[in-house]
Write a protein that binds this DNA or RNA. Structure first.
Length: 555
RNA sequence: CGGGGCGUAGUUCAGCUUGGUAGAACGCCUGGUUUGGGACCAGGAGGUCGCAGGUUCGAAUCCUGUCGCCCCGACCA
């Protein structure tokens, strides 16, 4: 055992509280004909897999997640409570996410800008609902100077600010305060602006990427001349997020509206995309809000419409954050480490040279360099790992870090004019041995076909990851009509439950307390599978319900 | 904010009960032999034991205070 060992067993196994993930049952137990992406041998009393320093999902899902983040060098805790350091490997993925999203924002007519980190308290106080929603968890700046007192640097008590500044938890208020100067006429609309920024929410309990005191995100803030146009924008951006999630992250999502209880403070309607993680819990992966005229009114922004009348513009805001990193990890990765979809992989392929003697090395290395060159010219990110380590050590390392394809080139390959390609994953087949699976990952191909084959692999692996994640979600999704079924489902492995709902906020809370579930979203019509269509009666109250909602435990 | 745990080498930890020269493994560096799934041998570098007081001839160890982090809960845009 090396690396992360000791404190593991038992440390997170405290009780069967809301973290149902800690039971040692294999995942996907009741999935039929489904790839067993999460299925593991049972390893009670031990996290297993210790040689690799990664807990298995079956033994300890939370630890598995933390191990991946740590061992794949994506992020780590900083010396500041609740704040993380995003390491180069993790940041590279985030940068790719940013690029993909930013391109889509631009393609839908948005431009980037930047607004201040500090928000005067009075701005936040103007929008009551909004302020109430953020009241408890903000960082507040009260002083503006340091002073050396008795040789120690301290806050200068004489530097107290007249008005405290809030470190932005989100920027609606300060942005709309600025929009006041930008919007006078219907000709100034729509105003379509996005900002990439950090925000701060003084979270009491944190988890790397999923919830930290400071995180990175983008927030779009738009202003429109009509309600309809703003509502369309809200849906358009949700669609952008869904497209990104599914086609770039290879992560299937359910698009829907939030229930009143889960709505963004100050919003008229909140939409979200919801993804299922490998423990069956839902993770909100992006939100888009129709804000009505709330923020325009509190910031006193008005415009003259075509009829020459003064009117408040209609607003939207939408955002995704570094939380997506957590979603990415928990959607695809396995017990060997990170699995990164090709479209987000900082390195597409790593070349591992194989040789014994110096004369072999002298032949193999140039061949590796030539291939690297060829692949790079074709736009692939290729790393040649020529470190003085055993090949096996390199295999494990790059698998752990999620590189999609490994290329091995050795003396035998040179003889046969071939190369060895090893994909990071294959779709698991039931009953397959570890050995068989490993063989299926590996292929020997003519050297001349390398580029085409690798390109093809990028494509097919991207698609397979989506298919695999979708199949997993389906296997953990049920249409449920009675409270008994509901209870049994969530006492078991759980997942997404499509249920009829007509309860009020209090009843929603009751359900949350009893089963630790919540309404993840009220799906858009396009999202509802055939088996879940139609009207029915509420699972709790028996009242008539027009459509089903998705309930799940959540992050 | 409540409950629990932990601060000793880069990392994970032992040592503390019963005070007496600072330990292990992994990692790192050097040299050699190795290299198609985590190599081996030899040598080496690396710690004001979280911080501040106190007790003592002597403190990583005992006492008091303090700071920080992690986990669980409340909370969660």
């Amino acid at each position: 055992m090396k690396g992360i060992g000791g404190r593991r067993s038992g440390s997170i196994s405290a009780g069967g509280g809301r973290e149902s993930v800690h039971n040692a049952k294999p995942f996907g137990a009741n999935g039929t004909g489904v790839p067993e992406m999460a299925k593991q041998q049972q390893q009670p009393q031990q996290s297993g897999n210790d040689a690799k320093g990664i807990a298995t999902r079956a033994a300890d899902y939370s630890q598995w997640y933390l191990d991946i983040v740590k061992r794949a060098e994506l992020a780590e805790h900083s010396s500041v409570r609740g704040c993380m350091v995003i390491r180069p490997q993790g940041y590279a993925i985030w940068e790719k996410m940013q690029r993909e999203l930013d391109d889509r924002f631009k393609a839908t007519g948005h431009v980037n800008a930047y607004f201040p980190l500090f928000i005067p308290l009075s701005f936040l106080a103007r929008e009551e609902q909004h302020a109430a929603g953020f009241a408890k968890e903000c960082a507040v700046v009260t002083h503006h100077r340091l002073k050396t007192i008795d040789g120690k640097v301290q806050v200068d008590p004489d530097s107290k600010l007249e008005e405290p500044l809030i470190v932005r938890p989100t920027s609606e208020t300060i942005i709309w305060n600025q929009y006041k100067g930008w919007i006078q006429s219907y000709r100034d609309l729509p105003l379509l602006i996005n900002q990439w920024a950090n925000v701060c929410r003084w979270e009491m309990r944190t988890r790397l990427f999923l919830r930290t005191a400071e995180f990175l995100w983008q927030e779009g803030h738009t202003a429109h001349a009509s309600e309809q146009e703003a509502r369309e924008e809200t849906h358009r951006m949700l669609g952008v997020y869904a497209d990104f999630a599914e086609n770039v992250m290879a992560m299937p999502v359910v698009q829907g509206a939030k229930s009143p209880g889960e709505r963004f403070p100050g919003a008229v309607e909140s939409l979200s995309i919801e993804a299922m993680m490998q423990d069956g819990k839902a993770l909100q992966a992006g939100t888009s809000h129709y804000l009505g005229q709330n923020f325009a009114k509190s910031a006193e922004v008005q415009f003259l419409n075509k009829e020459g009348k003064l009117e408040y513009p209609y607003a939207t805001s939408w955002g995704v954050s570094t939380r997506l990193m957590g979603a990415l990890i928990m959607t695809h990765s396995d017990d060997t480490g990170l699995i990164c979809p090709p479209k987000l992989a900082p390195i597409h392929a790593v070349i591992v040279p194989i040789f014994r003697k110096d004369d072999e090395k002298a032949k193999v290395l140039p061949a590796c360099e030539a291939l690297q060159q060829e692949l790079r010219q074709a736009g692939l990110a290729v790393k040649l790992d020529d470190r003085d380590l055993h090949p096996g050590a390199k295999y494990y390392e790059w698998e752990m870090k999620g590189v999609p394809v490994r290329i091995e080139i050795g003396p035998k390959d040179l003889e046969k004019d071939s190369v060895c390609l090893v994909r990071r994953f294959v779709i698991e087949q039931p009953g397959e041995s570890e050995d068989d699976r490993r063989k299926r990952k590996k292929s020997f191909i003519p050297r001349g076909e390398a580029l085409a084959q690798i390109r093809g692999l990028m494509d097919s692996m991207q698609k397979e990851l989506f298919q695999r994640a979708l199949a997993f979600r389906e296997s953990r999704t049920r249409v449920i009509d009675t409270l008994d079924q509901f209870e049994a489902f969530f006492k078991g492995d759980g997942g997404f439950a499509w249920v009829h709902w007509a309860g009020n906020a209090e009843q929603e809370e009751e359900l949350a307390k009893r089963f630790e579930t919540s309404i993840r979203c009220i799906p858009l019509a396009s999202q509802i599978p055939d088996a879940a269509r139609g009207a029915g009666t509420c699972i709790l109250t028996g009242r008539p319900s027009a459509q089903r909602v998705v309930m799940a435990k959540s992050y």
